[in-house]
């Protein structure tokens, strides 16, 4: 049985139809990337999976049961900074546990080990504005992961980072993911990032009325290093193959914009 399933999902904002008839299945522990040109409704699908947005047609199934309201299994790493600016790194990471009734002292203790896991062990008492963009993303990642969600939704989480920081974060993500293999739905417009990270890459057409137009399994061996894997012939072959399809959509999005 698939862990998460989109069944003929359409989302309309008034007369504007963002996505139409999207069907997609994620197996437990699978890392799936959604790629597509800007404005193709990738984030919309993530919001539907998180339960922040109800589909106008179709439904989302979580372990076979239709999703109502917020998705209890999901952790969501947003594109923008979503951590609380008035809490320290440590308290931000501890917060999801506090929301679940853990006392602050214990929550902070566990948060501390998570901060160390994402390489921020030396900055527990820094406020977000005192941290760099990459460090804030790490806090966000630790904050999402400490609650141990079974489904990880990620919306271009690293798009605002410089290339080096980005590759560092991608490797870190893979390392953390390797530990317990959560199901991941990762949205990006960067095809290389999608291939380097995923088990499967799903290509969406340009919006409006965006839909799934291709699915590519990525049989690259794990564990991977995102910087090195980009140089392998297999990676280049996959890239060429998927780009063939994606390019047309990017052109269409450009022409539309």
């Amino acid at each position: 049985m698939s862990f998460l399933e989109f069944r003929q999902v359409s989302v309309a904002f008034g007369p504007y139809v963002a996505v139409e008839g999207v069907s997609l299945r994620l197996a437990p522990g699978e890392f799936v990337s959604l790629v597509g040109p800007t404005g193709c409704g990738k984030s919309t699908l993530l919001n539907v999976a998180a339960g922040l947005l109800a589909p106008s047609h179709g439904e989302v199934l979580l372990e076979g049961k239709p999703l109502r309201g917020l998705n209890p299994a999901a952790g969501y790493l947003f594109q923008q900074d979503a951590i609380l600016p008035w809490k320290t790194a440590l308290d931000n990471v501890a917060l999801p546990l506090v929301f679940r009734g853990t006392p602050w002292r214990e929550a902070r203790e566990r948060a501390r080990s998570w901060l160390e896991k994402v390489g921020l062990g030396r900055f527990p008492h820094h406020y977000p504005h005192q941290l760099s963009g990459g460090m804030r993303k790490r806090v966000g990642l630790a904050q999402v992961l400490i609650a141990n969600p079974r489904l990880l939704l990620m919306d271009e989480p690293f798009s605002a980072l410089d290339v080096q920081t980005r590759q560092l974060m991608e490797n870190e993500l893979l390392r953390l993911w390797q530990e317990d293999r959560k199901t991941v739905l990762f949205v990006t417009h960067d095809l290389e990032e999608a291939i380097a990270l995923s088990d499967r890459v799903v290509v969406m057409s340009a919006g409006p009325r965006s839909r799934v137009i291709g699915e590519f399994p990525i049989p690259l061996p794990r564990p991977r290093d995102v910087a090195e894997i980009r140089l392998t012939p297999e990676f280049l072959r996959l890239h060429r193959e998927i780009w063939e399809l994606l390019r047309g959509e990017v052109m269409r999005a450009h022409a539309g914009a």
């Binding site: 947003f78 900074d81 917060l95």
Partner: peptide
């Protein structure tokens, strides 16, 4: 975004008031 994030992380109305609305 901060608000949605807090809700997804499991914040109830009381938590939102204390940790999000009032500090903001």
């Amino acid at each position: 975004v901060v608000l949605q994030n807090a809700r997804l992380l499991g914040a109830g109305q009381g938590h939102l008031l204390r940790h999000v609305y009032l500090p903001a």
